[in-house]
Amino acid sequence: MRGLVTGILGAVALMPSAPVQAQSTVGVWTVELGKKCAITQTWKGDNKNTIGIMISYLAKGQGLLLAFFDTDTAYKDKEEFKVLLEVDKRWKAKVDGFAADKNTAAVVLQASSDSVRALMDGNSLYMEVPDKPDNYSGTYSLDDTRKAIGALDSCRAQAD
Score class of each variant (00 low, 15 high):
L58K: 06
K92S: 08
A159E: 07
T6A: 14
K48G: 06
Y57C: 11
Y126P: 02
C155W: 09
V12H: 09
N47M: 14
E79K: 14
S24W: 00
G3F: 04
G34L: 14
Q21I: 12
V116S: 06
L64Y: 09
A151W: 00
I51K: 07
F81Y: 12
A11P: 08
P19C: 04
D114P: 01
D72R: 14
A22D: 14
Y75N: 13
A111C: 12
L152N: 05
G150Y: 09
Q23I: 04
I39M: 05
Y136E: 12
F69N: 09
F81E: 05
A157D: 15
G34P: 08
S141A: 13
G97R: 08
L9S: 12
A11F: 00
L58Y: 07
Y57L: 03
T30F: 00
Y140A: 07
T104P: 00
K94A: 12
A118C: 03
M15E: 06
S17R: 04
A13R: 15
E128F: 01
M1W: 04
M1P: 14
L66A: 10
A157W: 05
A105V: 13
T139K: 07
I55D: 09
K44R: 13
V5S: 03
N47L: 11
V107Y: 08
T30E: 07
A157F: 01
A157G: 06
A93C: 13
P133A: 15
K35D: 07
C155E: 01
E128D: 12
K147S: 07
K48H: 08
T73F: 04
Y126V: 14
T139Y: 06
L66C: 10
G63C: 03
A111Y: 05
T42G: 08
V26N: 05
Q23W: 02
I149Q: 10
Q23V: 13
L33V: 10
K60L: 03
S154R: 08
L125T: 04
I51F: 06
A18S: 15
G7P: 01
A59K: 03
D88T: 04
M15T: 11
M127K: 01
D88N: 11
L4P: 02
V28D: 09
G27T: 08
A100R: 07
L14C: 14
D101S: 10
D134A: 11
A157C: 00
L109V: 03
K82G: 09
M120Q: 15
L85D: 01
S112Y: 04
K94H: 04
A105G: 15
Y140V: 09
V95R: 03
S115N: 11
D88V: 08
A151H: 02
T6Y: 03
I149M: 10
I55L: 14
V12W: 10
W91V: 11
I51M: 14
V129E: 11
K147R: 13
K89F: 06
A74I: 00
Y75H: 10
A93L: 08
A106Y: 02
P130T: 03
W91P: 05
D96A: 05
G150H: 15
K94I: 07
L65Y: 09
I55A: 10
A99L: 09
K78L: 10
T71A: 04
E86W: 08
I39L: 03
D72F: 07
Y136W: 02
Q21E: 14
K102P: 01
Q21G: 10
